[in-house]
Design a protein around this nucleic acid. Structure first.
Length: 371
DNA sequence: AAGACGTGGAA
DNA sequence: TTTCCAAGTCT
């Protein structure tokens, strides 16, 4: 049946190609058996041999956290989440505010909102059990092409073609794909489909990703340690780091804005909640102006939550994915009367709030030592 | 379908 | 300092 996927070849050629591909995946999985990383959410091949099964909840949680995020950054959050909410039903039952607070600092906050929605969907629509097919998983919030295939392969041992940034790098080098990303994704996906074995597809997927993360790295790949050197066309060319070719990205514009840190007599800071959608959606912030492309330098005191002796407390620079923000921070002491919008929080308790990093920077500028 | 969407670490 | 980028998804 696999042969049918390889069009345009005679039966003999297809058989020969399949043999080569079997060798490649076998060699890679054998490398994985010896050199895989030990990760908190991973069942090692040795443990799997003893009958340990992956916990789909942990596989899913780790995959969502790892989207565009480093393993190093994810580890602490994964431990926190699994301690707070050991099962998908626990997460589904949790207040979304608590989930946002626990996610604060990890970035891409739509992931946290979708994580909560997904847990609720699994709990209420699937009896607390994750779907075990790519299609079923793909229908869940926050689960796209990559994550659905990864969960199907890793948690359910299905031969799904898993392609993330690591796999794209490995594939583009193996086959010297000259077309730039993301246009080259379809042809790379075809290669992954060809390569994915029916035996141990989950370990094959993790092996591809571990290889990309530890050996076949973006810069200075450690080809002398690579198990696939015999198959790598980019190595034969001599400069594997030239792959993958990527489309040129545009410059990052600058936006400016003002932020106001109000401190009352009880040592509390005024916060408010951002709108549920869009940038930093649902997260906490200090009051401030809109962030605009204009660089007129004039502080917009009309954006302050109330009139006060607002004193400058510095300019905070924060780099988002698609723009750079320069936030002029102001600070003032106040009576701490009731305000229309927002809520007061003790400075020493601010680390319990759903504050994104940019807001922690702004508060830290106004109140050195707050964090 | 191209842009929105965070953050911190490495070179 | 600047650039790149790390297990992508949604609209």
């Amino acid at each position: 049946m696999k042969r049918a996927q390889i069009a345009g070849l005679t039966a003999e050629e297809a058989t020969e190609l399949q043999t080569l591909q079997k060798d490649l995946s076998d060699v890679l999985v054998a490398w994985y058996d010896r050199h895989h990383r030990e990760l908190p959410w991973r069942v090692s091949p040795a443990a799997a041999r003893k009958g340990v099964k992956p916990d789909t909840y942990r596989v899913w949680l780790s995959e969502v956290m790892l989207q565009q995020t480093t393993v190093q950054a994810v580890k602490a959050y994964f431990e926190k989440f699994t301690a707070l909410w050991p099962t998908v039903n626990d997460l589904a039952a949790a207040p979304v505010e608590d989930v946002m607070k626990a996610w604060a600092g990890l970035g891409y906050y739509a992931r946290a909102r979708n994580l909560k929605k997904c847990a609720e969907a699994v709990a209420s629509d699937h009896g607390g059990v994750f779907p075990d097919t790519v299609e079923g998983l793909r229908a869940l919030p926050g689960v796209g092409d990559y994550t659905s295939a990864a969960i199907a392969a890793i948690a359910f041992d299905r031969p799904a073609a898993v392609m993330d940034g690591n796999v794209e790098r490995v594939i583009s080098r193996l086959y010297t794909i000259g077309e730039p990303l993301p246009g080259s994704k379809p042809q790379m996906k075809m290669r992954v489909v060809e390569l994915t074995p029916s035996d141990r597809p989950g370990d094959f997927a993790q092996a591809m990703m571990d290889l990309g993360a530890t050996i076949c790295t973006p810069k200075r790949p450690a080809c002398v340690l690579c198990p696939l050197t015999d198959d790598c066309q980019a190595l034969k060319e001599g400069e594997p780091e030239l792959y993958p070719v990527k489309a040129t990205k545009k410059a990052r514009p600058v936006r400016v804005g003002s932020a106001f840190v109000a401190i009352n007599g009880k040592g509390e800071v005024l916060l408010r909640t951002r709108p549920p959608e869009g940038l930093l959606g649902g997260m906490a912030e200090v009051p401030g102006s809109r962030w605009t492309a204009r660089e007129d330098g004039a502080t917009d005191l009309s954006a302050a939550p109330f009139p006060a002796d607002w004193r400058p407390a510095g300019v905070v620079t924060h780099v988002f994915t698609h723009f750079e923000l320069r936030l002029t921070v102001h600070v003032a002491e106040t009576e701490g009367k009731a305000v229309d919008h927002g809520f007061w929080r003790k400075i020493e308790n601010l680390d319990r709030e759903a504050l994104p990093t940019v807001m922690k920077k702004a508060i830290e500028a106004a109140i050195p030592g707050a964090f």
